[in-house]
Design a binder for these strands. Structure first.
Lengths: 209, 209
DNA sequence: TAGATTGTTAATCGATTAACAATC
DNA sequence: TAGATTGTTAATCGATTAACAATC
């Protein structure tokens, strides 16, 4: 399954939650496509991939769709996340995810600043860097978020992977290198802003975002 | 020019800055590729696209490369950015970009909270929502960052575009719809984290991040 | 039935990769 | 010269798009 499809499934699910809340029972592929900003053909192909099917007259059942996507995307028992670097951005992300997805919860923060260690931010306890290996192993954390400064991001990534993390969301503006079986998703805000500025100046050309 | 190439150029430039600081005069495509996490063929093709050429013996001149990429990516006179929604995430982003790229500066923040209006965050003045049109026009802002809550992101996008913005970096977890000539880049942290969690659990498969 | 939608198959498109000649 | 790298061309790959039969 390609990363693009996984991303679209996540978007569909968010839209389905909204439709469920409004009591909508069925949706057509072109309706989801309009809401998600993609094509109806993509929606149908993606939904087939997770084992959902619709009918020509009624489209897809919202509740069934939500259930299928969730079964596909989520781990049944939930997954735990660690966040390393409880600075401005780290705390903003802790606040952002607080209570948002109970099955994918940030259960531990880490920081080298003794002032932050022991405190709780948006319901998440901050530990020292030295405690990382034991905390990650005990809580069976397999996802890490790096909001540490660029100059220590690689070291942090190594420590996370060493403790058992298999996926990293990297906000530090550096390319980190890890073992092949670890998935790294870079979220480089500088790169994103420069790209937006480029297309804002040049006209959209063919930018796909 | 595809959005992927623009993103890689931005990464190359960051690496070149570092090399310049270390006094490195030349680089080979495979060296940049290793640092950027892409292939040497991609690097050579991207650099050709911005009009740079290298030699078999010395590779590429770092200074010349930096200059070419900058001339390609940056607006000569610089570009101004507005940020709407000076909450936790907005303030973290203001702090992150503060002084980072002088040619691409966040010159105004906007928030509906009267407590924030008139104050300065990381050197950026916060204005009221009512002032958006006039401030954006007077400062010739053509890039917007949306860090407002999801339920008003679409409205904010409409206001930004109405005031003349041609590119939007959207951190709100909703798909926003704007005119075709406006470039929108979504940065959906929920989608990103769910994708990382998915691959962390399933093994990397073919995730390209 | 009529008609819009679904799901499948083929065609297209773009980007990446591989192969190779040119070059310093 | 020898050899690694550059730049070009062809092949491959994946995803998207288009066309169409099946379906409710």
């Amino acid at each position: 399954m390609s990363d693009r499809v996984v991303g679209r499934l996540s978007v569909y699910r968010r839209l389905l939650t909204e439709l469920l809340g409004r009591g909508v029972a069925n949706v057509y592929s072109h309706e989801l496509a309009d809401l998600a900003g993609c094509t109806a053909a993509q929606v149908r192909r993606d939904l087939m991939a997770v084992g959902s099917s619709g009918t020509p007259t009624r489209g897809y059942a919202v509740a069934g769709l939500y259930e299928r996507i969730t079964r596909y995307l989520d781990s049944p028992g939930g997954q735990s996340v660690a966040l390393v670097g409880v600075g401005n951005l780290g705390r903003a992300i802790l606040a952002f995810f607080s209570g948002r997805r109970p099955k994918l919860k940030i259960v531990a923060g880490f920081d080298s600043d003794p002032e932050k260690v022991g405190r709780t931010f948006s319901g998440c306890r901050c530990f020292s860097m030295a405690e990382m290996t034991s905390v990650v192993r005990e809580a069976r954390i397999d996802v890490g978020i790096i909001t540490a400064p660029a100059d220590c991001a690689q070291e942090v990534a190594g420590a996370l992977v060493g403790a058992g993390v298999k996926g990293i969301l990297n906000f530090a503006p550096v390319t980190i290198h890890v073992a092949e079986d670890v998935y790294v998703e870079p979220v480089d805000m500088t790169v994103s802003l420069e790209r937006v500025a480029f297309y804002a100046r040049r006209g959209q050309d063919e930018g796909s975002g």
